[in-house]
């Protein structure tokens, strides 16, 4: 492959790396932080399933980003990705809540403004609606899971040690599902802007598996996420496990499952076609914030326990991120394209 092409993909690959470094903690943070699962095992499972999710189920959310704005040159795609990455970096440095999903949407709108392409407002509202729905839905799913899981555990009268062993297994399975959902939903953030200007063509691996150009693009993005998981996520996982989530292992499993289910819902083309085929309203396939899904699930459990642990300022910060992140990313992208 042309070195220039690879260089132009670096913006997306960097986003992928930072996604792996940060968001792997949402699926394996508690398990690793509480030493229920070793980091090496968690990183290996997470990497494999992130790549699988990206390649197998990553197209849905990417299509929605494509409807928002199709960036048709590789260099402009690179600028959009770098603008999103810069926004994420700047806001993280300033201690502001930020989501890669929201940054990339802002960057695409910035491209639309620069290139004079129309921005479909119905798609914008659909995306924003999804961001709002994501933590709420995660909270609701967490409540339902809690209501099912806790009585079931009590009914089963499991010995503490057996419950511990089963919880470990459940955390690994939930982590694998979470990693798959993360790859499926968030690969759009990493490689979505490159789809219209995709430099890859279809290949057949070992004469057995056919990969389309887009799947190859997503495979590369998935590998970047996996690299982020292996090189930098341990520190974040230990912080999340020991600090932000003072949850019991079972509650942690509920949070990871709620997060994974919500991300999967917003990524699954199979579910979308099933709902459409059954005449039911479909769930929009949009990249959503993995961290906000986790926070939503935790808040759901907090409300269920009487609301004592619910911090309203956290909610306000999340809501402010829905507005500020896309605006900043849009401005950075527009300004960069104008200068270049």
């Amino acid at each position: 492959m042309d070195v220039i092409v690879l260089l132009l993909l670096t913006g997306g690959l960097f986003l992928g790396w930072s996604l792996g470094a940060n968001d792997a903690a949402n699926v394996f943070g508690t398990a690793v932080g509480t030493r229920m699962v070793s980091f090496t095992k968690a990183a290996a499972i997470c990497s494999v399933f992130v790549v699988l999710g990206a390649v197998i189920s990553g197209a849905g959310a990417s299509d929605t980003l494509g409807k928002l704005g199709a960036i048709d040159s590789l260099s402009a795609s690179c600028v959009a990705a770098v603008a999103a990455a810069t926004t994420v970096y700047m806001m993280t440095r300033l201690g502001l809540p930020v989501s890669t999903s929201q940054a990339i949407v802002g960057a695409i709108i910035g491209w639309n403004l620069y290139s004079g392409s129309p921005t479909d407002l119905s798609v914008v509202f659909k995306i924003i609606g999804t961001w709002v729905a994501c933590p709420i839905l995660a909270g609701l799913v967490a409540v339902v899971l809690f209501k099912i899981t806790v009585p079931s555990i009590k009914l089963a009268r499991l010995h503490l040690l057996r419950l511990d062993a089963l919880t470990r297994l459940a955390l690994i399975i939930a982590g694998a599902f979470g990693a798959y959902s993360l790859g499926a939903n968030n690969i759009a953030n990493v490689m979505g802007v490159f789809v219209s200007a995709n430099p890859f063509t279809a290949v057949k691996v070992a004469g057995l598996v056919s990969l389309s150009g887009v799947e190859l693009l997503f495979l590369l993005g998935g590998l970047a996420i996996a690299l982020g998981v292996f090189t930098y996520s341990k520190k974040v996982m230990l912080t999340v496990g020991a600090g932000l989530m003072p949850l019991s292992p079972v509650a942690a499993w509920i949070v990871v499952m709620a997060h994974s289910i919500v991300l999967f819902l917003f990524a699954s083309q199979g579910l979308e076609s099933f709902l459409a085929g059954s005449g039911l309203p479909t769930i929009p396939l949009v990249p959503v914030s993995s961290s906000q899904a986790v926070i939503g699930a935790m808040l759901g459990l907090g409300v269920l326990k009487g609301g004592g642990g619910v911090n309203l300022s956290v909610l306000a910060k999340i809501a402010s991120g829905w507005v500020t992140t896309p605006i900043i990313a849009c401005s950075v992208c527009f300004a960069t394209l104008s200068v270049l």
């Binding site: 509480t34 030493r35 229920m36 503490l160 040690l161 511990d164 062993a165 019991s248 292992p249």
Partner: peptide
């Protein structure tokens, strides 16, 4: 301790 069981409890 050896098998790092029930870390929470």
């Amino acid at each position: 301790y050896r098998q790092t069981l029930i870390p929470e409890s």
